[in-house]
């Protein structure tokens, strides 16, 4: 069926965009967790603000 291209393209594109959103969320979250752990290992914790 000649319409297959349009249908397949739609599904592939949607899958790629949604996968991109999920991947971006995971990578961004990991980066922030790592940065926070890095700061805290250097003694810049939340409590150190008071002390």
């Amino acid at each position: 069926m000649s319409h297959t291209f349009f249908i397949a393209f739609s599904y592939i594109l949607t899958a790629l965009v949604v996968a991109g959103l999920i991947l971006r969320a995971v990578i961004d979250h990991r980066m922030q967790v790592r940065a926070l752990a890095d700061l805290e290992s250097r003694g810049i914790g939340r409590r150190s603000r008071r002390g």
């Binding site: 979250h29 922030q32 700061l39 805290e40 250097r42 810049i44 939340r46 150190s48």
Partner: peptide
């Protein structure tokens, strides 16, 4: 939203450092 909250903590702590 969770990542954004972490990003703000990182920002605050970096300024503090």
């Amino acid at each position: 939203m969770r990542t954004e909250i972490l990003r703000r903590r990182v920002r605050t702590l970096t300024i503090l450092e």
